[in-house]
Amino acid sequence: MNWSAKIVHHDNKERIAVYFEKNIQLIERIKQFEDARWSQTLKAWHIPNTEENRIRFKIIPLSHSIPSAEGIENIEKFKQWLRSKRYSENTLGTYSEALKSFLVFYREKPVAQITNEDVIIYNNEYIIKNNLSASYQNQIVNAIKLFFATVLETKIEIDKLHRPKRIKVLPNVLSKEEVKTLLNAHSNIKHKTMLSLIYSCGLRCGELLALQPVHIDSKRNIVLLKNSKGKKDRIAPLSPKILEMLRDYYTLYKPTVFLFEGRQKGVAYDARSLQNVLKSALQKAGITKPATLHWLRHSYATHLLESGTDLRYIQELLGHNSSKTTEIYTHVSTKSIQQIKSPFDDL
Rank of each mutant, 00 (worst) to 15 (best):
H191F: 10
Q264D: 05
K85F: 10
K324D: 13
A185W: 06
V111N: 03
I30Q: 04
I24G: 08
C201Y: 10
R163E: 09
K265D: 03
V111A: 01
W45R: 02
P61E: 13
P61I: 11
V151P: 01
L238M: 12
K219F: 14
S96M: 05
H320W: 11
K265W: 15
D233F: 14
L197M: 03
K232P: 09
H298P: 03
T115F: 01
L318T: 00
S135K: 05
N138Q: 14
T50V: 00
K79A: 14
K77F: 11
D11G: 05
Y136H: 13
Q40L: 07
V173W: 11
I158P: 00
L211S: 07
D233L: 08
S39V: 12
E89C: 02
S187L: 03
T193E: 00
S228Q: 05
R54D: 05
A281D: 05
N90H: 14
I337M: 04
G308S: 02
A149Q: 14
C205G: 04
L259D: 06
W45V: 03
H186M: 01
K289M: 06
Y122C: 08
N123L: 08
V277G: 02
A185H: 11
K168F: 14
A285H: 06
N23Q: 09
R204Q: 06
K31W: 12
Q139K: 07
L304A: 03
A36W: 12
I47P: 01
D248S: 13
I72L: 11
Q275P: 03
A271H: 15
L259N: 03
I140T: 10
L224V: 15
Y87L: 01
S96I: 04
P61M: 09
I7W: 01
E157I: 15
K145E: 02
E76H: 14
K145F: 12
D217P: 05
I156E: 02
E261K: 09
L274F: 07
E207L: 06
I337V: 10
H320V: 04
I287G: 05
I127G: 00
T41Q: 14
E97T: 15
E34G: 08
M194F: 03
Q32T: 14
R234A: 03
P67G: 08
L146R: 15
V223C: 08
A236V: 15
R29A: 12
T292W: 01
I222Q: 07
L62A: 04
N12S: 11
Q137I: 11
I198G: 05
L146P: 06
K160A: 12
L208D: 09
A291S: 09
Q25E: 13
V173T: 03
A36E: 00
L317V: 08
Y126M: 09
L208W: 00
N276Y: 13
E52R: 08
E28K: 10
W3M: 12
N221L: 11
L103Q: 05
T94I: 15
D310K: 13
A291F: 04
S135M: 04
